[in-house]
């Protein structure tokens, strides 16, 4: 399916329910029921914030196959959890179909970053002080257009509204880059401290699956400010998809034969902190014209 087809689908998805509240129909005067259970409302807003990611290796791969025992820890990737910040910015469209219960679409442009280290060592078997050790730090940055769909339940009905939400998400990859930084301590050549060897940046968009999906859950609150609501929420995304594009895993590039980096099968989890401002699309009042 082409991206344009997706956009059309999403636009349809977003437009279709709006028919019930389109201008023409909105002009029809309908009695507004003040019973809380029958109030429905559309909200739109903008949201943005930061996120931290954690890649989990499901199956690890290496270009090296060792024919002799090797130093413990060498050749193993050590993933760093929730260390590199990414950003997200997007919109929210909510439909409150029961009091306090809403369905939300949160399209956003999101960048995820994570990294891992590994190292390799060679030495003189008669004098292990005569050795060379290379350290490899591999940072990956993935950029997605994400489309979470959540169900949100507000726990209180005052101006301050804490809530919980849960749902699923899918994301379309728009860019992927790996940055490799290689350092070396080459005692065999007379070095007594680490030196930089290589800084390399390689596009890996073809090596990551185009689509990601998973479940999302979080907590947050909104606070009424005039007719708008300001909010802050924390969500956890749990990826259900192995993001590595298996068909490209060992297709040679600078990373595999140059820096000995072979991507693992991995999934991505993520913690995001977002601020948001949302406004209602219609103003519902009681018979006394008090905003509800």
């Amino acid at each position: 399916m082409k991206w344009s087809s997706l956009v059309v689908l999403l636009v349809l998805a977003l437009m279709y329910p709006s028919n019930g509240h389109s201008q023409g129909k909105a002009n029809r005067r309908k009695p507004v029921k003040t019973g809380n259970s029958d109030i429905n409302q559309w909200w739109i807003g903008v949201r943005g914030g930061v996120n931290l990611s954690h890649a989990t290796a499901q199956e690890s791969y290496s270009v090296f196959s060792f024919t002799r025992d090797f130093t413990d820890g060498d050749n193993e990737k050590n993933y760093h959890a929730f260390t590199l910040p990414g950003l997200q910015f997007g919109f929210s469209v909510s439909y409150e179909f029961l009091t306090g219960l809403s369905v939300n679409i949160l399209p956003a442009y999101v960048s995820y970053r994570y990294s891992y280290d590994n190292s390799f060592r060679w030495y003189d078997s008669e004098n292990q002080n005569n050795n060379v050790t290379t350290g490899h730090n591999i940072e990956t940055r993935l950029q997605y257009i994400d489309l979470p769909l959540t169900f949100k339940y507000e726990l209180l009905r005052g101006a301050f509204k804490p809530y919980v939400q849960i749902g699923g998400y899918s994301g379309y990859l728009t860019d992927a880059i790996k940055k490799a930084k290689i350092t070396s301590v080459d005692q065999a050549s007379g070095a007594d401290r680490e030196i930089n060897v290589t800084d390399l940046s390689v596009g890996v968009e073809d090596r990551i699956k185009k689509w990601n999906y998973g479940i999302i859950g979080g907590i947050g609150f909104t606070y009424n400010v005039g007719n708008a609501r300001l909010g802050l929420e924390v969500n956890h995304r749990y990826g259900l998809q192995n993001l590595d594009n298996g068909g490209m895993k060992f297709v040679d590039n600078q990373l595999i034969t140059g820096t000995y980096d072979v991507p693992d099968d991995f999934s991505l989890s993520n913690l995001e902190l977002s601020m948001q401002v949302i406004i209602p699309l219609k103003f519902i009042t009681s018979k006394d014209y008090i905003p509800l």
Binding site: V63, D74, Y123, K209, D244, N245, K249, T257
Partner: peptide, 21 residues
Amino acid sequence: DKPEDYVPEASFIKIYNDEFF
């Protein structure tokens, strides 16, 4: 999205390494 899964025997790059100078 119908990406390919990795088939380990179909493609690989291996370097047979030991740590000795």
